[in-house]
Design a protein around this nucleic acid. Structure first.
Length: 344
DNA sequence: AGCCTCTTCGATCCTCAGCA
DNA sequence: TGCTGAGGATCGAAGAGGCT
């Protein structure tokens, strides 16, 4: 069975292929009689015709595809990001090609090359690139926008979140509740995780303001153990918190993200302690689960939808109008206080 | 064998002819 | 003169076929 083409539609309707193109693309600058228009639409419906996107791209030099690169799908933050990007891109007539790097540099490079070969119209990074040199090189031929950390050395438009401020917000919140012994638990801090480091710096800076910096306990999983298992981050939170409670007298635990905070919550519950009466727990990202579980997790919202929308707008502006400017937009995070944090 | 030219795929769009 | 719609060039890559 051969897929019907515009020529088949034209033959059935008794018009030329160009007339089919005018009608189906609803060209306002060309007048077509209502009778011809109806004949074309009927023929297209009868044949169940859909335009061949590759052929269209051949002529227009547009694939209407945007490549979205994310580091993992196991953390619900990234599906949330993907969904908001997909929805907004669709409303502008674009489709998304999703690439999951599993936080591996070689996968990132592979997908960048794949997306270039697939002739996508633009690329969105859902995180700060681990390979900025390659991303910069590709951005000279394909529009690229990063939804990640602000980095002035990278000449790519970036829609960032102030992770330092996010850390400060959490720190200030816990201090205002009277917490003096605070722990920060995290997946590996080495190498690639700029946002993890900035969150920590923000927390440190706020504690320093109150002369509490020395009280901060930092527990990080080692880089060698980083995995793509779907429960990996929850396990880190669980294991690090279990050790923490045995070894120290912390009254508040900050997870590097909500998933790690979930693990902390489980560990505390398992040790017959109460959240927040015995230990307060908070995280970052404001994923939907942090609102659903009990107690709800105090966290920092990333304004994911707004940032996704802006990233697509910047990308489409460059794809459509050839806008060469490099934009660096930084959003201020929002603290979301829920039941998992309380007074000491 | 190696190189070059032509053809093919399907949709789009510019140009132009026919007609009222 | 304006409306309508046909003809054909064009896009990029791959394969076929011809020539040296």
């Amino acid at each position: 069975m051969k897929k019907p083409t515009s020529r088949d539609v034209a033959n059935l309707a008794g018009v030329s292929p160009s007339t089919v193109s005018f009608v189906l693309n609803d060209r306002k600058d060309i007048s077509i009689s209502d009778g011809t228009r109806l004949k074309v639409l009927d023929a297209a419906k009868q044949l169940n015709y859909t335009p061949n996107q590759f052929a269209r791209g051949l002529k227009t030099n547009q694939s209407k595809l945007i490549g979205l690169i994310i580091p993992t799908i196991t953390n619900p933050y990234y599906p949330m990001l993907t969904q908001s990007i997909e929805e907004y891109a669709a409303s502008s007539g674009y489709n998304i090609l999703l690439c999951n790097t599993y936080r591996k540099v070689e996968n990132e490079e592979f997908y960048l090359n794949l997306l270039t070969n697939k002739s996508v119209d633009g690329i969105i990074y859902g995180f700060t690139p681990n390979y900025p040199q390659i991303a910069c090189k590709i951005s000279s031929s394909i529009p690229v926008v990063i939804i990640g950390e602000k980095d002035d050395t990278v000449k790519i438009s970036t829609v960032a979140l102030n992770s330092f401020m996010a850390g400060e917000m959490i720190g200030q919140h816990l201090i205002s509740l009277g917490h003096k012994n605070i722990a920060f638990i995290t997946s590996p801090l080495e190498g690639m995780s700029l946002s993890r480091q900035k969150r920590l710096h923000g927390i440190k800076s706020k504690l320093k303001e109150y002369n509490l910096e020395k009280n901060l306990v930092i527990k990080a999983e080692s880089y060698e153990n980083e995995s793509n298992d779907s429960t990996y981050e929850i396990e880190i939170g669980y294991n690090l918190t279990s050790t923490l409670i045995k070894e120290t007298k912390v009254t508040a635990v900050i997870g590097v993200n909500d998933m790690v905070a979930f693990g902390a919550l489980n560990a505390i519950n398992n040790m017959q302690l109460k959240v927040p009466e015995d230990i307060s727990v908070c995280g970052f990202d404001n994923i939907y689960l942090s609102k659903v579980i009990r107690p709800g997790i105090t966290t920092v919202d990333h304004l994911t939808f707004h940032r996704s929308k802006l990233a697509i707008d910047i990308l489409i502006n460059r794809m459509g109008n050839g806008d060469e400017d490099v934009y660096r937009v930084e959003y201020e995070p929002r603290l979301i206080v829920r039941e998992s944090t309380g007074p000491v």
